[in-house]
């Protein structure tokens, strides 16, 4: 019955296809253009065609991008910084969510509201003072100067998601575990965390999306290449190869690739994470 009604009343399927294809063309064309010309030679850029078939595919653009863009070092830094940030945010979200939803103390709501306040604060308002603080403490240009703000600004959302999940779940299993003599920390690690798996995946994804592409804080607090992250590959490279657009296109394609790969692998979770994070954030 459903099918019949749908065909009878639905907007012509042709029109739906045309509209959706048009939107996706607008969203994807600049990226297709990017990949296409990343295989061209620099002289071929001056064309009146939207896309071209390079006379000879310039694979050589990529190795240049790979080595001169410090690609591997910056990719490694991005992975290290992000993995640590995600792990810490996850642990702190679980602990603090338990403290404010289950533990009984006078200031539990106050503590929660204070941390959630972080969601409203514009990150970039802290660029100047944090620069001064890190400079004073001598942690500028270290891993800490990235990790600390990344964790602090992802934590409010993590706490929010974890706490709203804990509030909606019945306490019976926990009570049974406590009566059996399970301590708070073991309870958190082996009873609560496994139960929260799906909402914790959301925390992981939101934290990852917040920080993977972050650039302003990194460029303000870092000065040497030791801890620079993936976005720097492009920016340092554009300075170096100002005249060679084709190689720049290769480096852009290369730095975008890891994020796209992660998206393809996790797109289902990311879709869920974004919608949950938005509705609850």
């Amino acid at each position: 019955m459903t099918d019949k009604i749908k065909t009878k009343f639905s907007l012509g399927r042709g029109i739906i296809w045309v509209a959706l294809t048009l939107f996706s063309a607008v969203q994807l064309f600049p990226l297709i253009w990017l990949i296409d010309f990343s295989f061209a030679s620099n002289t071929e850029f001056f064309t009146s065609n939207l896309l071209i078939i390079p006379r000879e595919i310039q694979w050589g653009n990529y190795p240049k991008a790979f080595t001169d863009g410090h690609f591997l070092l910056y990719l490694k830094n991005s992975l290290v910084v992000n993995t640590l940030a995600v792990a810490i945010v996850l642990a702190l979200s679980i602990c603090s969510a338990y403290a404010v939803t289950r533990m009984r103390w006078k200031f539990s709501q106050t503590a929660k509201n204070i941390i959630l306040l972080g969601m409203m604060i514009p990150i970039h308002a802290t660029l100047i003072p944090n620069y001064m603080i890190y400079d004073f403490l001598g942690v500028r240009d270290t891993l800490w100067s990235l990790l600390l703000p990344y964790v602090a600004f992802s934590l409010p959302q993590g706490l929010f998601l974890a706490a709203s999940y804990m509030e909606s779940v019945s306490k019976e299993i926990e009570e049974a575990a406590i009566i059996d003599g399970c301590g708070t920390f073991r309870l958190l690690g082996s009873v609560i965390t496994p139960m929260m798996k799906s909402s914790l995946i959301t925390v992981v994804i939101m934290t990852y999306l917040n920080n993977w592409n972050e650039f302003m804080m990194a460029s303000t607090y870092l000065s040497t290449s030791k801890w620079k992250t993936l976005p720097f590959s492009i920016l340092e490279f554009t300075g170096q190869y100002r005249a060679n657009a084709a190689v720049q296109f290769a480096v852009m394609t290369l730095t975008a690739a890891p994020a796209i790969l992660i998206y393809v692998l996790l797109s289902k979770h990311i879709t869920k994470g974004v919608s949950m994070g938005a509705v609850k954030g």
Binding site: L92, C95, S96, Y98, A99, V100, R102, M103, R104, W105, A111, I114, I115, L117, G118, I121, A125, T126, I128, P129, N130, M132, I133, L148, P149, V151, A152, F153, L155, L159, I178, G183, T184, F185
Partner: peptide, 30 residues
């Protein structure tokens, strides 16, 4: 167990410290 002050402190302190250090202190300094 749910009122254990020491446990509460261990659970919440790191998050509050992160907030104070990365968000509150900078804004006050500003």
């Amino acid at each position: 167990m749910l009122r254990d002050k020491r446990v509460i402190a261990i659970l919440i302190a790191p998050s509050l410290i992160a907030f104070v250090f990365a968000v509150l202190a900078p804004i006050l300094l500003s």
